[in-house]
């Protein structure tokens, strides 16, 4: 194992984290989708590198799934949805950009603080990878909390799931079945959410969740 192996793994995981930060402040829909596709590609690369490192051919399948589903199919489908919803020109007002970024950084610090002492027994390679993964999960959650547009919330959810897959592949030994089922669940979530988006729009003429909050769940 050459000394560059872990460095490359860290580079890929770190770049995914960086892309997560990019996701946080994208205020245009298409840009958001593109950045998400970029993160999915990062995930595919990272998983493929893990497959090479761990000599685990089944991980290549995971990488292909990640690239196919999250890198291509879902962004393209969401792209179409956005066009059909007619919100591709809308600019989402992201609340408190500066504080959100600062908070995201604090979350990264927190996940490093948690992960490094907890996983003392594991190798350095796994430990830092896990810290990156937890950061990506937390940033995904943060995005879901701060965004008001339903589409951006979906993307936040997907990026959270990217973090989960990254953690799973890093921790060597997650069965393929689980990964495939996770992938499928994401797909189903995507379909369900997509249907919901249209339903919401039909009812409220918008996918801005603020309108839902105003109505308080009581339909007229």
């Amino acid at each position: 194992m050459s000394p560059f192996d872990t460095d490359i793994a860290h580079l890929l995981a770190g770049s995914m984290l960086l892309v997560s930060f990019l996701l946080l402040y994208q205020d245009r829909m298409f840009a958001l989708l593109n950045v998400f596709a970029l993160q999915a590609c990062g995930l595919a690369l990272s998983v493929a590198w893990q497959a090479y490192l761990q000599q685990a051919p089944q991980l290549f399948i995971t990488a292909v799934i990640a690239l196919g589903f999250k890198g291509i199919i879902i962004p393209v489908a969401l792209h179409r949805i956005i066009v059909r919803l007619g919100i591709h020109r809308s600019i989402e007002t992201v609340i408190g950009m500066g504080p959100t970024m600062l908070f995201g950084m604090a979350l990264v610090g927190l996940s490093i603080m948690v992960m490094l002492p907890v996983t003392q027994a594991a190798g350095t390679f796994v430990r830092e990878d896990l810290a990156f993964a937890l950061s990506i999960v937390l940033l995904g959650l943060l995005m879901m909390v701060t965004r008001r547009n339903a589409v951006s919330q979906v993307i936040g959810f997907m990026s959270l799931e990217n973090g989960l897959v990254l953690a799973a592949t890093g921790a060597r030994g997650m069965p393929l079945v689980v990964e495939i089922s996770v992938a499928f669940s994401v797909l189903i979530a995507f379909i369900v959410i997509g249907i919901f988006l249209f339903r919401i729009r039909e009812r409220f003429d918008t996918v801005d969740l603020h309108a839902l909050e105003l109505s308080g769940g009581e339909s007229t």
């Binding site: 959650l141 879901m144 909390v145 008001r148 969740l209 839902l212 909050e213 308080g216 769940g217």
Partner: peptide, 8 residues
């Protein structure tokens, strides 16, 4: 009676 975002 919270909104989805507040639950999240």
């Amino acid at each position: 009676f919270l909104t989805i975002r507040k639950y999240l």
